[in-house]
């Protein structure tokens, strides 16, 4: 085997192992990582749609729907049960995506993005306006749920949440990778390259995109529930367009071509944002903007793409032919 293949094979596992050890090695970062991992699920949702060449500037909608659904459920049950919250939140997001998706998958490109934006802004305004139900801009606090019936203290709960989130992210990565490798996933990519040809083959591009849309919404929903549980609060800001933009931003940063980009991108993004906010409180937005510009201009395939080209350089020549295909999906799979 070549060096490149070895590195590619080992690195994801090394990264996961490093993540799994964080609570023992550097406990201060544990909660931040939980939040980052939760967000990476939503980014993964955005990446699914990017395979079809479609970008949603309103996916925070599904993030917020699930988070609010879980908050209402939890608060009505005096804390509730985390497993139930996760299932209910994800199902709510997927169900809404199925209904609005029927309309939205008829649109492409800018209009696809704008319709999603409009929907998320309607929901955002609704959350802010209907103060007596949603708590307005202060949002709802989310009581600490039980875990499989057990009421945990903060410390153990946060640890469970961290490993639970990590497990769910790994599961979601595997599942999404499988989906994208499946015939439906291949057809999604055909929407990006040549949709009309797909239709000539007798395939309904709309149904294919709808499947991807519901999956991406479910991933966002899962992330939303985890985020609100980790934070103990859910606010309308969950549905704000800047957050949707952030998901797309991270997807590009990590590398929209592969599912691994979601995790790598989010970790890098949160690290930059946290340290920028801590050490350059005045200009953290500017720093993020410059990072984004540099990535797009000089590394359009994101961090994963950078890593690939690096391993390619140190790898052997025959590997080169596989690169184009490899750029599309998955690091190391």
């Amino acid at each position: 085997m070549t060096t490149r293949a070895q590195i590619l094979r080992v690195l994801p596992y090394a990264l996961l192992l490093a993540l799994a050890l964080v609570p023992q090695v550097y406990p201060a970062a544990q909660v931040l990582l939980t939040l980052a991992l939760a967000k990476s699920l939503a980014v993964l949702g955005v990446i699914v749609l990017l395979q079809a060449g479609q970008v949603s500037f309103g996916h925070a909608l599904f993030f917020a729907i699930a988070a609010y659904a879980a908050a209402f459920l939890g608060n009505s049950m005096g804390g509730g049960e985390i497993v139930l919250s996760l299932v209910l939140g994800t199902v709510c997001s997927a169900a809404v995506a199925l209904v609005v998706g029927v309309f939205i998958v008829r649109y492409r490109h800018i209009f696809f993005g704008m319709l999603n934006l409009a929907l998320s802004m309607i929901f955002f305004s609704f959350l802010e306006k209907f103060y007596h139900v949603t708590g307005g801009s202060d949002g709802l606090s989310v009581a600490r749920p039980r875990v499989l019936g057990m009421a945990l203290e903060r410390g153990p709960f946060e640890l469970v949440l961290f490993y639970g989130t990590l497990g769910l992210v790994i599961g979601a990565l595997v599942l999404t990778h499988r989906f994208l490798s499946s015939p439906v996933g291949q057809m999604m990519r055909a929407i990006k390259t040549n949709e009309v040809r797909l239709e000539y083959l007798g395939v309904s591009a709309r149904n294919v995109l709808l499947a991807g849309y519901v999956l991406s919404a479910a991933l966002c929903g899962l992330g939303g529930v985890l985020m609100s549980t980790a934070q103990g609060i859910v606010t309308p800001e969950y549905a704000w367009w800047v957050r949707s933009g952030e998901f797309v931003f991270i997807a590009i940063l990590g590398g929209a071509g592969s599912v691994g980009g979601a995790v790598v991108g989010t970790l890098a993004y949160e690290a930059v944002k946290t340290y920028a906010a801590a050490f350059a409180a005045d200009i953290w937005q500017m720093i993020l903007g410059v990072v984004l510009l540099v990535v797009i201009l000089f590394a359009p395939n994101g961090l994963i793409g950078l890593f690939r080209s690096w391993t390619r350089r140190i790898g052997s020549a025959p590997e080169r032919t596989g690169d184009r295909a490899g750029d599309r999906v998955g690091a190391g799979e």
């Binding site: 909660v31 934070q231 609060i233 606010t235 800001e237 944002k273 906010a277 953290w284």
Partner: peptide, 8 residues
């Protein structure tokens, strides 16, 4: 910088 950043 937002709630997450603040709590972190």
């Amino acid at each position: 910088a937002g709630g997450e950043a603040l709590l972190a």
